[in-house]
Each structure stands twice: as C-alpha cells, then as structure tokens.
Simulated scan of single mutants.
Amino acid sequence: MHASNSTFSNMFEFRREDPWTAQVYLLTSPWPVICICSAYLLFVYRIGPRFMQNRKPYNLKNVILIYNICQMIYNATMFLLIFYYIFIVNVYDKSCMETLKLDSPIKSVERWISYAFFINKIFDLLDTIFFVLRKSYKQITVLHVYHHAMMVFCMYWVIRMYGVGGQYSTMGLCNSLVHFTMYFYYFVSGLRPEMKASLWWKKYITITQIIQFMIYLVQSIIVLLYNPSCQFPLFMQWQQIFQSTVMIVMFSNFYYKAYVKPKKRTE
C-alpha cells in the first residue's frame, strides 16, 4: 500500500523549475501566455468575424508568402539544430531522454532551442489570424484552433514545470520537420494557385501529422513499460499519451472527412 501511494505521488512530482525561466520574456509568469491564448480565441471566434462582417476579404498574398518563407527557414533551422544535438552530439540517452542537468556545458543551448520552439508556436497562431482576415472560415476547424492554442499553452507549462529539452526534443524534431513541409506546400500553392489542384502530396502532410503523434505516443509507452526508472515525470508521460491520442483521433477524423469520404461519394 505504501509503495502504491508513493508511485501515485510521484506521478504529480515535478522538478523544480529552471531558475533561467524567471529571467526570460514570456516565461516569468503564466499570465502572458494566458492572455495570448485568450486573445487568440476571442479574435478567432468573436472579434475577428465581427470586424470582417461588412468588409471584403483582405488580399494578404504577399504577406503570407513572406510568412511562409520565414516559417520554412525557422522550422528547417530548428530541425537541423535538434537533429544535430540528438543524433550527432548524442546529448540524450534515447531510452530515457531527461532534460540536461543545470551544470551541463550545453545546457544553455538546450534552453534556447526549446525557447525558440516555444516562440515559434506563438508565431503559428498567425495562420488562423490570416484565415479570419481573408474570410476563409471553413479552414478554422476545431482541430486547427485546438492544436494551435494547445501547443502554446502546453509548451509554456512543460518548460516551467519540468524544464527544457529532454523527451520533448522528440516533439521539436518531428514537429519542425512536419511544419517545414506544411509551410513549403502553403508557399508553393500560394505562389502558383493554378498548381494547387496538382499538388497531390497535400494529403500526405496530414498523414505525417498523424505519424508524429504516433511517435510521441509510442515513445511514452515504451519508456513506461521498459524503463520505469526513468526520471521523466510520470504525470507528463501520461499527459503526452493523452494529448497524442487526442490528436491522432482528431487528425484521423479530419483525414477521413477530407480525403476518404469524398472519394467514396464519387465512386
């Protein structure tokens, strides 16, 4: 009974937050992130549609093309940096990817890569803002809004309650690659709208989204089953399993409605 209670309490035991977070913009308090996510949701569902109600859609082609280029460069850089430190420098034990100790010589690198990933999730919110200003409301799905807001909110709490890097470096690696591919598609289809119908690989972007969440799910399950001594907090393992499962279901449902169901109707 005592061992059971100890295991239960360990599920909710977090490392002391990295003191570095007390000095970094947007990480010193939860209120900036709460305000950002709240303002995002208010604009997307209330303020934005009311503002655009009697206005024509804005022509944001050039702005979005520049945004897509910036996102491609940003995500490619993130992917290469994370890949380098995970597989070339080999900073983590792959069977238990714990955040580096505070006295690690490359702790500052781990911190700033994680922070850059967090900031990029905030930049991702502009996707939805552009949809509103262009009146592309059909693209503002529950999946889209939930995914964007959840990533900003959860990444803040991960950094504050657990630390930077570690097992979440897998997320940074996969997510950066997926987003590079996604923004490359957006750039090509935005630059040459006439090519959009011929870009057959669009649906595979959704498939890669599903695969990335399967990777996170499998990663946590393997650690829980085969490396129970891993110091990555149990609560966060279960949180990763829960969020991965939710996203797999939501993206799979989107894939079915967007690509499988229409095909059945035409047969």
Rank of each mutant, 00 (worst) to 15 (best):
Asp93Leu: 13
Trp20Leu: 06
Met97Phe: 03
Asp124Pro: 01
Asp103Asn: 15
Ser4Thr: 15
Ser6Pro: 10
Trp201Leu: 09
Ile248Ser: 00
Gln240Met: 13
Lys135Pro: 06
Gly163Val: 00
Tyr168Thr: 02
Ile159Met: 08
Val44Leu: 12
Lys203Phe: 00
Leu125Met: 12
Ile88Trp: 14
Ile211Asp: 02
Ile222Val: 13
Asp103Gln: 11
Trp31Gln: 08
Arg160Met: 02
Phe235Asn: 05
Ile86Trp: 01
Val63Tyr: 15
Cys37Arg: 02
Ser104Thr: 10
Ile205Phe: 07
Phe117Met: 08
Met155Thr: 03
Asn54Thr: 08
Ile222Gln: 09
Ser176Cys: 06
Tyr115Ser: 02
Ile82Ala: 07
Val91His: 06
Pro19Asp: 02
Ile66Pro: 10
Tyr25Ser: 12
Asp18Val: 00
Phe180Met: 07
Leu60His: 07
Ala258Leu: 04
Tyr92Thr: 04
Asn175Pro: 01
Gln71Gly: 03
Ile66Phe: 15
Pro262Ser: 08
His147Leu: 07
Glu110Leu: 01
His144Ile: 09
Val24Ile: 13
Tyr58Asp: 08
Thr206Pro: 02
Leu27Pro: 00
Tyr58Lys: 14
Ser104Phe: 10
Tyr255Thr: 00
Ser9Phe: 11
Leu143His: 03
Tyr255Ser: 01
Pro193Lys: 09
Glu13Ile: 11
Asn5Phe: 11
Met236Pro: 00
Trp201Phe: 15
Ser29Thr: 09
Lys202Asn: 06
Met195Pro: 11
Ser169Trp: 01
Ile47Cys: 03
Asn90Gln: 14
Gln240Cys: 11
Ser176Arg: 02
Lys135His: 13
Ala39Pro: 01
Lys61Gln: 13
Phe180Ile: 01
Lys264Gln: 14
Ile207Lys: 12
Thr99Leu: 09
Phe235Leu: 10
Val132Trp: 06
Ile241Gln: 01
Arg50Asp: 10
Ile129His: 05
Glu17Leu: 14
Asn175Ile: 03
Trp200Pro: 04
Tyr186Ile: 10
Ser6Gln: 15
Asp103Ile: 09
Ser176Asn: 05
Lys264Asn: 15
Val63Glu: 14
Met161Glu: 12
Met150Cys: 10
Asp18Ala: 04
Leu81Thr: 08
Ile140Ser: 10
Trp157Ile: 04
Ser38Leu: 07
Val164Asp: 03
Ile129Met: 10
Ile88Thr: 13
Leu41Asn: 00
Pro49Ala: 11
Tyr58Gly: 07
Phe118His: 02
Met78Gln: 08
Ser38Glu: 04
Cys96Glu: 06
Ile210Thr: 04
Lys135Ile: 10
Ile210Cys: 07
Met171Cys: 08
Met1Val: 09
Asn120Tyr: 04
Asn75Ser: 06
Gln243Leu: 06
Asn227Arg: 11
Ile140Gln: 11
Val44Gln: 02
Ile222Gly: 05
Thr141Met: 03
Gln209Leu: 03
Val260Arg: 06
Leu125Val: 03
Val24Asn: 03
Ile88Gln: 15
Lys257Ile: 07
Lys202Val: 04
Leu234Tyr: 05
Pro57Val: 12
Arg50Lys: 15
Ile221Tyr: 03
Gln219Asp: 05
Phe12Ala: 14
Tyr256Cys: 06
Ser4Tyr: 14
Phe254Lys: 01
Ser229Glu: 11
Met182Pro: 03
Ile106Ser: 15
Cys96Tyr: 05
Leu27Arg: 00
Phe123Gly: 04
Glu13Lys: 09
Val145Tyr: 09
Thr245Arg: 01
Phe187Leu: 14
Lys61Pro: 05
